[in-house]
Amino acid sequence: MGELTLGHFLTLSALLFVIGMLGVLTRKNILIIFMSIELMLNAVNVSLIAFGRYLDSIAGQIFAIFVITIAAAEAAIGLGLILVLTRRQDSVDVTSVSLLKE
């Protein structure tokens, strides 16, 4: 307790990342999987900014900006893919997408 240390922020980041990973691994709804990926990217941002803050560097924040950019691009394309998917098979279940396996 007491003063805030780097460990506080890194623990928060690790918790958020693991929760996001559980979401990706246990859920079958592709929308929830996308949200979990956003959670994981956000957790990485927290640790990047915390490292930057405790190393007196601004590069961590710059990197976080790029991560947010890529997350936005990924969300736009991913949600477009979800729309196409529901158009084709009327379901957001990822386990039913097995065309390449057959």
């Binding site: 246990t26 079958k28 956003e38």
Partner: peptide, 27 residues
């Protein structure tokens, strides 16, 4: 995030028909 990406998510949830969103938490 909360302004753009999440609104995008909510739009897609609204566009997908409700019966396609049935509970899938059965890994």
């Amino acid at each position: 995030y909360t302004g753009a990406i999440l609104v995008l998510f909510l739009f897609v949830i609204m566009l997908v028909r409700p019966e396609d969103l049935r509970e899938l938490n059965t890994a």
